[in-house]
């Protein structure tokens, strides 16, 4: 049955037990790749012909900006699962994704501003890419805030899911903002369909760091989701047994 794994992973207990191993490996992969990619990118990769050393902030900025959008997409998918299947775990996923995604989004905005000052001559400009990314950060904050505005957790979950879903319309706007409109932000250097607009000595460490941040996001996400599962299921037998075993 094709749906079996889907319903299995939807069970909080199943998730709590299986995700432990995933979390462990994601953590180690993140650490190894992060050290490798960051040292390579910051110390070994060549300087840029125009920007000099300041371009190296892409080894932080590009991965976190990717993640901020990818995690939002994940949150929108979880929102559909929650609204259609009423799966508890999807609600937990939205809750965890909002916090992790928000952190990545703020990092992307701050690192971009720091890079913008020497390169463009300004920290901030209201162009379509920067503004849509700021809206993404506000959406994340809104979803975090909305949850605590409700007393009934089920209602809170549903409201957050609807907001997450509606906000997903911002994702294509962010992605294509640099192509649809005149922006100060340059178009993407890495594309799935074309050769990167930089030599391998620059994009290989960037790719390593992108993978590293993806693994780090999985680690953070699973750690946070497992904690949330324990709190939500604190009255369940298996959690009580787990607590007793630790005493």
């Amino acid at each position: 049955m094709a749906w079996q794994w889907f319903h299995q992973w939807g069970s909080p207990r199943w998730f709590y037990e299986r995700a432990e191993r995933w979390q462990f490996w994601a953590g180690w992969i993140a650490l190894v790749l992060l050290v490798l990619g960051t040292v390579w990118g910051l110390a070994i990769a060549p300087v840029d012909y125009q920007q000099g050393h300041s371009y190296r902030i892409i080894y932080l900025h590009v991965p976190v900006a990717f993640l901020a959008q990818a995690l939002y997409l994940g949150m929108a998918v979880a929102a559909v699962v929650l609204l259609v299947w009423r799966m508890k775990l999807a609600d937990i996923a939205i809750q965890a994704l909002a916090v992790v995604g928000c952190a990545f989004c703020v990092l992307a905005l701050v690192s971009g501003a720091i890079w913008g000052k020497p390169t463009w001559g300004t920290y901030w400009v209201w162009d379509a890419r920067l503004t849509s990314m700021l809206i993404l950060a506000f959406l994340y904050l809104g979803i975090i805030g909305l949850r605590s505005a409700f007393i009934d957790p089920e209602l809170a979950g549903k409201a957050c899911a609807i907001l997450a879903l509606v906000g997903a319309i911002n994702l294509p706007i962010i992605k294509y903002s640099v192509e649809w409109w005149n922006t100060l932000h340059q178009p993407a250097s890495l594309k799935l369909t074309e050769r990167p607009a930089m030599p391998a000595s620059m994009w290989v460490p960037l790719l390593l760091n992108i993978c590293a941040y993806y693994a780090a996001a999985v680690y953070l996400l699973f750690a946070s989701m497992r904690t949330l599962v324990l709190r939500r299921e604190r009255r369940a037998q298996w959690v009580q047994a787990l607590v007793r075993a630790h005493d």
Binding site: P46, V47, D48, Y49, Q50, Q51, Y55, I58, T119, W120, G121, T122, V125, L184, Q186, P187, A188, S189, A197, M198, P199, S201, M202
Partner: peptide, 17 residues
């Protein structure tokens, strides 16, 4: 009143340039 530099998506080491 303000001049901003616009950077393109190309990155290159100086030797290549």
């Amino acid at each position: 009143t303000e001049v901003l530099a616009k950077h393109d998506e190309n990155y290159m080491p100086p030797e290549v340039t």
